[in-house]
């Protein structure tokens, strides 16, 4: 009797997996300015160790379409983590249109058009007021993958 229950459970779960063809992986990095041998300073994305207030943290979100069909209207959403502040112009991603929300994800707009209400009037939003970032990708072909990323500063 117990065996049968487990079997039913497994069957019920299997179809869901088949349809969830797009998956995401998020990785955090500690962004460190490193002086190179030639004297130039480059920004390295290192393991997220020794992060203290004021430091930059980069997030890379890897998407994969592991299904057999093209995924369309792909929208990756990422709320800016608590205790961090979005770094202006840091969101990036090939073939994506990036929009932002400054009101917990209710409204999204491109950076130049993002406004917040203050004393009854609309004014341009500051980077520190951004609560969500959204990457809109028209289509992701079967078997293909990509990355989007953004940076925050630890408060």
């Amino acid at each position: 009797m117990r065996m049968i229950k487990m079997l039913v459970g497994a069957l019920a779960f299997a179809p869901l997996m088949a349809f969830a063809q797009v998956s995401l992986t998020t990785t955090a990095f500690h962004i460190v300015a490193v002086k190179q041998a030639d004297g130039s300073v480059t920004e390295e994305w290192q393991k997220p160790e020794n992060i203290v207030p004021g430091d930059l943290v980069g997030y890379r979100i890897h998407y994969v379409n592991s299904g057999k069909e093209t995924a369309t209207d792909v929208v990756v959403n990422n709320p800016v983590p608590d205790n961090t502040e979005y770094v202006v112009n840091s969101a990036a991603g090939m073939n994506s249109q990036i929009t932002y929300s400054a009101d917990q994800g209710k409204k999204f707009a491109r950076a130049a058009e993002l406004t917040v209400e203050e004393n009854g009037a609309q004014r341009p939003a500051k980077a520190s007021e951004i609560t969500h970032i959204r990457w809109s990708i028209n289509s992701v072909a079967a078997g293909s993958s990509g990355d989007v990323e953004f940076k925050v500063r630890v408060k």
């Binding site: 869901l16 349809f19 797009v22 998407y63 995924a71 990756v76 959403n77 990422n78 630890v154």
Partner: peptide, 17 residues
Amino acid sequence: VSNTASVSYAVGGTNQT
């Protein structure tokens, strides 16, 4: 400090979970 992204998409014009 935690970060979780989510994705929505459609297959053949039908929105998926």
